[in-house]
Design a protein around this nucleic acid. Structure first.
Length: 765
DNA sequence: CAGGGACAAAATGAA
DNA sequence: TTTGTCCCTG
């Protein structure tokens, strides 16, 4: 009996169709990963295909790992021989394998957003650009768009025509590319574009892989961009056994060049393609599915399909209107407390989804207060933390000394007294002699202009790097990491700082080193390059694992491919979801809203049993309250699917400021004398002379928090314990207000330069 | 060169 | 409200 017997008829049809091009249109929760894994197992076990003749491409490492695991479950160790990976990792691998044929240096660095911005800043300096509305960021965006369209600098220039602006961008693009080449570096886009281009230029190399991959599979085909599309075509061109799986309704990566047309036109690209639709959903209740179907039905640009399920009607969807974002967070947390308490759900059963990462803050604060376990996917990514990036940059420089961007990042971290001026001398020497910075530093005696002090410091840095470089030949990966941490002086720097944050940073680096050990233990090819590549291509999803017992917070984008019994979608408001930008664009082009709607569809279909949709009347943005309207997507869900709409409002304990007064503020958490957790808020601002301010503050206060401020002579400090007070420098009046607030007002005398106002709230135990 | 203040900009999403 | 950059001073 074939293993395909375990599939439903549509799934079986898709998995059994192994000859020729196949398009599987798989709705959310219809078992597409199942189809892919069974198809691969079927090929290996029942059709006798060698695993190394099979290619499977996904978008995230997590998806790739999951697929390998599931195939392994079916066919055993043979699964290890299959080429499974993300587009980016497979391309990186191909570029390194074929480096000689392609004329590349195989130790190339992979630049992330930070690095490419740093590189672009250098280009800006070289071109002396001071134009206000030309930022490195915007130029990079344009270059990235060009790359995704497979437009190289020369083509870009020739298409620029008479437009001075375009010409300038073309120049910057050219210079940026030259810079990356000089640094022996590729950015994310390059990994894909270079591979396609190299294959174009080296048909004999391409042919090798075409021969090799008898069967190719591509997951999430709706999110492929131009180079990814071309790569698929290139690799599958010989055997033509290309199986693409996707859902046009879940295409959410247009912003990074994904082209919906790739999936919509698949049948045109391959007229002999067989198309299979998977429309039976095994995940969600009828009501949730109906909501999703109704929302997505408003899109025009789609193949059209309707999910259905045998499952239960299920619970009604909860629609909740909240006064503020803070109140919204509190509602979510209160609900979660119930659900995970008497509700019988585990924390790991629930996800909180939002449109933008910034929204996670209010939610996190409330969760922290509640003591519920949670993890956040992707907001402050581990590998983007400063200390981690710094240490990694040292390592990167050891692997690729030509990496000027990397060298600039760490040559003065920790502080060695090597400033821009000194580095400019080195740069000049490098430029004059066609060297990279690292090599230039090696010839310090020939660098002109440096004073003795700088020369000594740079020499010290050079010695460190040479030591590390020598150690690299013998040391294990983790040993090398530890050595970098110590020898660079980074560890000492953190120790000297002697703060809890520095302590935390030290622990983070230790964690990185632990990961290096694990990497060596589990990989056959545990080289420094392989390690750096893995980290560079890691997605935020990949960083969270083994937290099945915690509530997950993430963006809607990160949630794709996942499912949870309980899902909260927060911030269902116009100008947030859909974003202001798409609302704006949709005035000219009604289609512009469609990607947002697909994202909404993705969110809804993550839920298995319970779905909560929340929106607010007002929300903080850049430090001030803005009014919000409910999202149009809410109106697209039929009323009968909702339970009674709930409205949650309560006292807003934040400081309010009448008039146009603006304060700089900061808040921090600390313990008071009796060991209670206290949130302290300090407001300070340089004051114009003799101005009168008035505002509300909460009544509860903790006197001892402010004593340090009171003592400073150019500060006036006010806590609620002050009833009447006056200093020579100004006058303070505090009186009881209504409710939980008390009115504070201050009149400032002419010689007051600064004022600090602090109040504190006791945290609930 | 480093540290601090003033001021401007920021945040859609991500490999 | 937070973060980054520019400019000034010691």
């Amino acid at each position: 009996m074939s293993i395909l017997e375990q599939l439903n008829p549509a799934q079986r049809e898709a998995a059994a169709a192994t000859k020729g091009p196949v398009l599987v249109l798989a709705g959310a929760g219809s078992g597409k990963t199942r189809v892919l894994t069974y198809r691969i197992a079927h090929l290996i076990q029942e059709q006798g295909v060698a695993p190394w003749n099979i290619l499977a491409v996904t978008f995230t490492n997590k998806a790739a790992g999951e697929m390998r695991e599931r195939v392994e479950h079916l066919v055993g160790d043979l699964a290890n021989e299959i080429w499974i990976g993300t587009f980016h990792s497979i391309c990186a691998r191909l570029l390194r394998y074929e480096a000689e044929h392609f004329g590349l240096d195989r130790s190339f660095s992979i630049y992330d957003e930070d690095d490419r911005r740093a590189a672009m800043r250098r280009v800006f300096e070289a071109y002396n650009i001071n134009d206000k509305d030309l930022t490195p960021r915007s130029v990079i965006a344009q270059i990235s768009r060009a790359k995704n369209a497979m437009v190289d600098p020369m083509t870009f220039a020739s298409e620029a025509g008479q437009s001075a602006n375009k010409k300038l961008i073309a120049d910057l693009y050219t210079a940026y590319e030259a810079d990356l080449r000089r640094n022996n570096a590729l950015d994310f886009d390059d990994l894909l574009v270079e591979t396609v281009r190299q294959f174009d230029n080296h048909p004999n190399v391409l042919e090798k892989y075409q021969q090799r991959f008898h069967y190719a599979h591509v997951d999430e085909y709706q999110d492929t961009n131009r180079p990814q599309y071309m790569l698929c075509r290139q690799l599958a061109d010989h055997h033509r056994n290309l199986c693409v799986v996707g859902d046009d309704d879940q295409s959410i990566y247009q912003f990074r060049g994904a082209d919906l047309r790739n999936i919509l036109d698949f049948e045109r690209d391959y007229p002999d393609a067989q198309t299979v639709r998977l429309e039976q959903n095994y995940r969600s209740t009828k009501r949730i599915l109906e909501a999703a179907n109704q929302v997505i039905a408003n899109n025009k640009d789609r193949k059209g399909k309707a999910l259905w399920t045998d499952g239960e009607e299920g619970h009604l969807i909860e629609l909740v209107q909240c006064d503020t974002d803070r109140r919204e967070a509190r509602f979510v947390v209160e609900s979660l407390r119930q659900l995970t308490g008497s509700g019988g759900y585990a924390p790991g059963d629930a996800a909180i989804l939002y449109r933008t990462n910034a929204q996670s803050r209010a939610l996190e604060e409330e969760l922290q207060r509640s003591g519920l376990r949670y993890t956040i996917v992707g907001s402050i990514r581990f590998y983007e933390r400063r200390e981690i990036k710094d240490v990694l940059t040292y390592l990167r420089l050891l692997a690729n000394p030509a990496d000027d961007v990397g060298l600039r990042r760490i040559i003065n971290v920790p502080r060695r007294g090597i400033g821009d001026t000194s580095l400019d001398y080195v740069q000049r020497h490098a430029l004059n002699n066609g060297l990279n910075l690292f090599t230039a530093i090696g010839q310090l005696d020939f660098v002109e202009g440096l004073n003795a002090r700088a020369r000594k410091q740079i020499a010290a840095f050079r010695d460190i790097m040479e030591d590390l470089s020598a150690a690299r030949k013998t040391a294990q990966l983790a040993e090398l990491g530890q050595l970098v941490f110590e020898r660079s002086g980074y560890l000492q720097m953190l120790r000297d700082e002697n703060t809890p944050e520095a302590q935390m940073r030290e622990e983070n680096v230790e964690q990185l080193i632990a990961f290096m050990t694990e990497f060596s233990d589990t990989r056959e090819e545990a080289t420094l390059e392989a390690f750096l590549e893995e980290i560079a291509l890691m997605s935020p999803m990949d960083e969270t694992e083994g937290n099945g017992n915690a509530i997950t917070l993430m963006t809607l984008h990160s949630a794709k491919g996942l499912e949870y019994p309980v899902v909260f979608m927060c911030g269902m408001e116009e100008n947030l979801f859909p974003t202001a930008r798409s609302v704006e664009e949709s005035r000219r082009d009604p289609q512009a809203i469609e990607e947002e709607r697909r994202l909404c569809y993705v969110g809804i279909t993550r839920a298995r049993e319970r779905l909560y949709l929340t929106y607010t009347n007002r929300r903080y943005a850049y430090g001030n309250m803005i009014d919000c309207d409910p999202s149009r997507f809410l109106q697209e869900i039929p009323d009968e699917l909702f339970s009674v709409k709930r409205e949650v409002v309560d006292f807003n304990p934040r400081m309010r400021k009448p008039g146009q007064t603006r304060f700089g503020t900061s808040s921090q958490r600390e313990s008071n004398r009796s060991g209670q957790q206290v949130r302290k808020k300090v407001v300070e601002k340089k004051m114009p002379k003799g101005v009168h301010y008035e505002w509300d503050a909460p009544k509860q206060a903790s006197e001892d928090l402010f004593s340090d401020l009171v003592d400073q002579d150019d500060f006036l400090a006010v806590g609620q314990w002050v009833r009447h007070a006056s200093w020579g420098k100004g006058q303070i009046v505090a009186r009881d207000g209504q409710g939980e607030n008390m009115k504070l007002s201050i009149r400032f005398g002419p010689h007051v330069k600064k004022v600090a106002v602090a109040y504190a709230q006791l945290e609930p135990a």
